[in-house]
Amino acid sequence: MGIEIVGVNKSFGDFVALSDIDLSIPGGGLTALLGPSGGGKSTLLRIIAGLETADSGTIEIEGRDTTNVPAQRRNVGFVFQHYAAFKHMTVAKNVAFGLEIRKRPKAEIARRVAELLELVHLEQFAHRLPAQLSGGQRQRMALARALAIEPSVLLLDEPFGALDAKVRKELRDWLRRLHDGVHVTTVFVTHDQEEALEVADTIVVINDGRIEQVGTPDDLYDKPASDFVLGFLGPVTTLGDRLIRPHDIEISRVEQAAVVDGPITRWTRVGFEIRLEVTPIDTRYAPVQVSVTRTEAHALGLHPGDHVWLRPAVGAPSVVST
C-alpha cells in the first residue's frame, strides 16, 4: 500500500519546485527524501500532507485517493523542523489535541496520552509548557502529538534539522528504534546524507524538482545513478575523466597500470585518516584527492612528494564526469 505519487507538478510563480514526480513509497517502511535545500523535497512532503496542493498529479495514501482531500481529513501525522508546539498548552494537552478534535472519550484520551508520553520518554513532563522543554524534548513531544491520531502515514520535515549534533544523533537512533516498534509508514525529509544512510530503509534523492534515484542505502552508495547522487552521498574527486570517492582509489608507489600518475603534492592528516593530493604529470587532468588510513600509508611507505600511480579500486562505484 504505502503512498503512490503519480505525475505531480508544482510551481511557485516561475520557480519549478517539482516536475513530473512519480514515486511509490512502500508501506510500513522508513523512507528518506534526500537532497539539497530548495530541491523540492519539503514541497513534496507538504503535498503528501495536504499542506500544499499540487498543480497536477495524484496522491494516493494507503489505497485512498487523497489528491483533493484537505489536510484535516488525510489522517496524516506531520512533524515540523521547528516543532510547531502549541505554546499555550501543556505537553499533555499538545498530545491530546488531535484526539480531542476527534471527540474521543476523556478516559481514552488520558490513557492514550499517558502511553504516548511514555513512548517518547516525556512522562514526567506532562504538565510542563513547551517553553520549559529542550529542543530534543519538544521534538519528541511533536512526534507523540503526531502519533496520537494513529496516522496512516507519518511525515517528518527535517525533524532533527534544528537540533545540535549530539541530540540529533541520539534522536536519529531513537527514531529508528521507534519505527521498528510502531511500523507506521514513515517519510522524512533531510539534507544530511549520513542521516538518510543511517536511518532509512529506502532513500529517494531529489534535486532540482526531479527524482535522481530511488533505492536502499547500499544501492545508492554502491550504484549511484548519476554524478549528482555520487557527489551528494559523500566526498568525490576526479580521477582521469571519472568521478570516484577518494577512498576508492588504489594508490601505489611502484609503477603499475594506472589512470594517472604524479607526485603527492599535499599531505593532510585528520585523525586516523590521511588526505593526499596527487597532481598528475599529464596536465590535462585535474589534481586528484585520495584518502588512505594511516595504517595503509604506513604499509605502502608513502611520503609527501613521492611519485605514485592511481587507479580505481576493484568494484568501486564511479561515474563519467560531466
Binding site: 500532507a49 481529513r73 501525522g77 515540523f80 510547531a84
Partner: peptide, 10 residues
C-alpha cells in the same frame, strides 16, 4: 507551522 500542525491533526 503551528496552524499547519493543527490542520494535520484534523
Amino acid at each position: 507551522e503551528v496552524e499547519e500542525a493543527a490542520a494535520s491533526l484534523g
